[in-house]
Design a protein around this nucleic acid. Structure first.
Lengths: 179, 179
DNA sequence: AATATATGAATGAACG
DNA sequence: CGTTCATTCATATATT
């Protein structure tokens, strides 16, 4: 279920020299490792149970066994219900691209088009798109203001940049539950 | 790395009473799990290292690409850098005081002043201050709601203005997570 | 080490 | 549109 893919995508093919990965590739790698890490934590537990004695399957109230099965399904996906829309990776990329090119474009009827396109990659409503652009613009501007305000702060201040420096979010790659 | 196969194997449908796997199969399974467990421990560590990726020393926002080598290097070491701001005792006191006196005053341009003042006691950015107040307000409110919601016994009058019809109107895209 | 809690940060949605 | 709210995520810290 979530196990394939480590190598299926741009095999980074690193030579031992000075190979460089793009942020995207790195991000993908992170996500995948994260998935494996999750699976692995479970496996470690399971292993412990197994080693600790009995048949993992028959002995206990099949709790462990079941865990393994459902494990695969939830590997990279938080099973927590999502109550608010969250753009998928693909959707986000598209949105960012549009935002960049049409910079100050307060979308209007294009919202429909964009929505239409994005809905091929997960459910989404026009309101979502609208809000997204609103927020994007507002936050970009606010960040700018802050940046321009600080003058000589040579204190090697920590970066408050947060534009796209997303941390690896261990989920958001797999199936988007639609209902 | 051949992780596949672990899950591809249809989980033996076990019943409560009889064991459907032979001892051999079980043994094989154990061995496999054991191996995976080992691999996974490594992966977990690696993942942790990668996720913590940041650069406390040069502060440079690592551009579009990052060398794989450095990635590998990080996997081995514990990047113990703190990647999120933490207010010092002094800063916290000041923040609390300001929060108390200007209670409902959602700071706006005062952020700058506050930041300026606090930066005399350690690293801090306007964003930090902004976030701090946001969180402070939100969490204070939530705590109160919890208190008022269940203590309704004889104190029926101390509810704050509940006139805020702030209700999530998630009527269209609520995703019902079943499981 | 496993779990619980506190909290800085990110972000979708709503308000004026 | 600029601000603010509400919820969620991820990490830091504390506890057993």
């Amino acid at each position: 279920i979530g196990l394939r893919g480590v190598g299926s995508q741009h095999p980074p093919s690193f030579t031992m020299q000075e190979q460089v990965m793009t942020e995207e590739q790195l991000e993908t790698l992170r996500r995948q490792i994260s998935v494996y890490a999750t699976i692995c934590r479970q496996l470690v537990h399971m292993h412990r149970a197994v080693v600790l004695q009995m048949d993992p399957m028959s002995g206990m109230p099949l709790g462990q066994a079941i865990a393994f099965d459902s494990l695969m399904g939830m590997a990279g996906q938080r099973v927590t219900a999502r109550q608010r829309w969250t753009p998928s990776q693909v959707q986000l990329q598209i949105l960012e691209k549009i935002f960049d090119q049409d910079k100050g474009t307060p979308s209007k009827q294009k919202i429909k088009e964009i929505t239409a396109e994005l809905s091929q990659h997960g459910h989404i409503s026009e309101t979502n798109v609208y809000n997204w652009f609103q927020n994007r613009r507002a936050r970009t501007k606010r960040k700018q203001q802050i940046v321009t305000s600080n003058s000589g702060e040579s204190e090697m201040d920590n970066s408050l940049d947060s534009s796209k420096g997303k941390q690896a979010k261990t989920d958001e790659n797999i199936v988007q539950e639609t209902q």
